[in-house]
């Protein structure tokens, strides 16, 4: 099961979904909105996705994980929209007969999701600026593009 949602992620529902009699191990990973990134303070994040493609990519991750590990159930959920500090933006829940596969698959799923699923986060910094996060596209490029919504006098090096 994989999906995008604009509602808070219901972790109990995910755990119920993956906790089945064949399983002896259930792993749940949550990615949550962190306040500090390299010393800069975040007040909120906005997530945007390309829904048709993101859902397809999540389904592909589910299928690939099942090929690689003996999994019972997989549940992948990514939230879109406005998130406050400590809210969960992403959930990966997997179950397997034994714990090693559940841990390994969960780790692979979140790592690969972050590299391949077309979803983007926009930082709302405490100084009032906002900024789309694009790994590899560094702060200088953002500045060169005029893409940073800096207020006069704001700014500084990016994390």
């Amino acid at each position: 099961m994989s999906r995008l949602t604009r509602e808070p992620i219901d972790t109990q529902e995910l755990l119920r979904r993956v906790t089945v009699p064949a399983a002896g191990a259930v792993v749940l990973f949550l990615g949550t909105v962190r306040e500090l990134t390299a010393g800069r303070r975040t007040v909120a994040l906005d997530y945007e996705g390309y829904p048709e493609m993101a859902e397809r990519k999540l389904d592909e991750l589910d299928a690939e994980a099942r090929r690689r590990w003996p999994l019972c159930e997989v549940a992948l959920v990514h939230r879109l929209g406005h998130l406050e500090l400590a809210e969960a933006s992403v959930a990966v829940a997997v179950s397997s007969p034994h714990r090693a596969a559940a841990f390994e698959a969960g780790r692979w799923l979140i790592d690969t999701l972050k590299e391949t699923v077309p979803v983007w986060k926009q930082e709302h910094w405490a100084d009032g600026t906002t900024e789309w996060v694009h790994p590899g596209l560094n702060g200088d490029v953002n500045a060169d593009c005029g893409l940073r919504n800096a207020e006069p006098g704001a700014g500084g090096p990016l994390p």
Binding site: G31, Y47, G49, Y50, M53, A54, H78, S89, V90, I110, L113, K114, E115, T116, V117, P118, V119, W120, K121, W132, V133, H134, P135, G136, L137
Partner: peptide, 10 residues
């Protein structure tokens, strides 16, 4: 066609 800047989900 969609332009996909470096993704930052998770």
């Amino acid at each position: 066609i969609a332009c996909i800047p470096p993704v930052s989900g998770g």
